[in-house]
C-alpha cells in the first residue's frame, strides 16, 4: 500500500496525543502546575495537527463534515465522530486547568475513554479491511492502542519531570511496562505477517485455478493507474528488514535506556528536573521510531487487487 505522508503523520501524532490525553484524564499530572497546562495544550495540539493533516489526503475536503454521518457501518466515520466527542471533555478540562488550576475527574474519565475508543476506531479502519491480509487481525488495534499508551506514558513522564516529579517513579515504571507490551505485540504482529499464506491468489482472483497455475501476462495498460499507485507500492524485503530494526532501536531500545536512566537517577540521587532531558530524548527517539513503523505498516502491506496486476 502507498505510504501517504499525511496519513502516517496523522496516525502517529494524533495517536500520541490521545495517549497523553488518556493519562491526563485520569489525573496523573497536578493541574496547578505549568507542566500540566503545557501537557493539555500539547495533547490538543497533537490531536488537532493530526486531524488537520488527515484531511490533506481527501480529494474533496470541503465536504469532510459528511464523514460524521455513517457511524453505523463505517469505522472511518466512527473515528471522526469519536474524535469530535472526545474534544468536548478534553478541551473543557484543558480550559479548567489553564484558567483555574483545576480539572474535573468525570470529564477526565470521559476524555480517557473517548481517547481510547478513537484510537481503536482508527486502527479498525485498517483491521476491518479483508483485502489487506497483514492488517486484517485483532493484533492491529492491539498494537495501535499499545503505541498510544506507550507514547502517552513517555509524554506524561516528560511533563511530570518538568514539574515536581511527584509521580515520576510510577510513571517511569509504567513507561518500561508500556515499552515491553508494545514491543511484544508488534513482534507478534510482524511474525504473523511473515508466516501468513495469502488469502487470495491469482488463481482465486481469476477462478482459473482448476486449469492450472495463473500468471499475469499483460496488464490492462502499460502505465500505472490509480490502483497500482495506491495499492501497488512495494518495498524490497531487505530494506524492510533494515527499517524494522531501525524501528526496534528507535521506538523501544533507546527509550528504555533513557527511561532506565531516569529510574536509576530517581532511586539513587533523588529528583532533578534535569531528568526531563532524558525523558524528552526518549520521546524524540520513540517518535522517529514510530514514523518508521507506520511507513512500513503501509509499505509492506499487500493488497488483494495486486493479484490482477501481477504484484
Amino acid at each position: 500500500m502507498h505510504p501517504a505522508y499525511s496519513v502516517i503523520f496523522f496516525t502517529v501524532v494524533s495517536g500520541m496525543g490521545y495517549g497523553l490525553a488518556f493519562f491526563l484524564g485520569i489525573g496523573l499530572l497536578d493541574p496547578a502546575t505549568m507542566a500540566a497546562k503545557a501537557a493539555y495544550l500539547s495533547a490538543l495540539g497533537m490531536i488537532g495537527a493530526g486531524l488537520i493533516s488527515s484531511t490533506f489526503h481527501l480529494k474533496n475536503p470541503h465536504r469532510a463534515w459528511r464523514a460524521f454521518s455513517q457511524w453505523r457501518s463505517s469505522w472511518l466515520s466512527r473515528e471522526g465522530v469519536m474524535a469530535i466527542l472526545t474534544f468536548i471533555p478534553l478541551t473543557t478540562n484543558a480550559a479548567l486547568c489553564v484558567l483555574f488550576d483545576i480539572q474535573s475527574l468525570p470529564l477526565g474519565i470521559a476524555g480517557t475513554v473517548g481517547a481510547a475508543i478513537t484510537v481503536y476506531s482508527t486502527a479498525m479502519i485498517y483491521a476491518s479491511l479483508r483485502t489487506v491480509d497483514a492488517w486484517h487481525t485483532r493484533l492491529t488495534p492491539a498494537c495501535y492502542l499499545a503505541f498510544a499508551a506507550l507514547g502517552g506514558t513517555l509524554w506524561t513522564l516528560f511533563f511530570d519531570l518538568l514539574s515536581t516529579g511527584s509521580n515520576a517513579l510510577q510513571l517511569s515504571l509504567l513507561s518500561g511496562a508500556a515499552i515491553a507490551g508494545a514491543l511484544a505485540l508488534k513482534l507478534q504482529w510482524r511474525a504473523r505477517v511473515h508466516l501468513q499464506v495469502p488469502n487470495s491468489t491469482p488463481e482465486t482472483a481469476t477462478g482459473l485455478g482448476h486449469i492450472g497455475a495463473v500468471r499475469l501476462l499483460e496488464r490492462p495498460h502499460v502505465n500505472d493507474n490509480y490502483l497500482t499507485r495506491e495499492m501497488g507500492f512495494r518495498i524490497a524485503r531487505k530494506h524492510a528488514a533494515k527499517l524494522f530494526r531501525l524501528h526496534l532501536i528507535m521506538a523501544y531500545l533507546l527509550p528504555i535506556i533513557m527511561v532506565t536512566l531516569v529510574l536509576v537517577g530517581l532511586t539513587f540521587a533523588g529528583f532533578s528536573a534535569w531528568y526531563a532531558v532524558s525523558a524528552g530524548l526518549s520521546l524524540v527517539f520513540h517518535t522517529i521510531g514510530m514514523f518508521v513503523e507506520r511507513w512500513l505498516f503501509f509499505a509492506e502491506a499487500r493488497h488483494a487487487v495486486m493479484n490482477y496486476y501481477g504484484g
Binding site: 489526503h57 481527501l58 480529494k59 483485502t131 495506491e230 488483494a304 496486476y309
Partner: peptide, 13 residues
C-alpha cells in the same frame, strides 16, 4: 470526499 477507503475495501480493483 475522495478519501479512497472504498477502493481499499474492494478486492477487485
Amino acid at each position: 470526499i475522495g478519501c479512497g477507503l472504498c477502493a481499499w475495501a474492494c478486492a477487485y480493483g
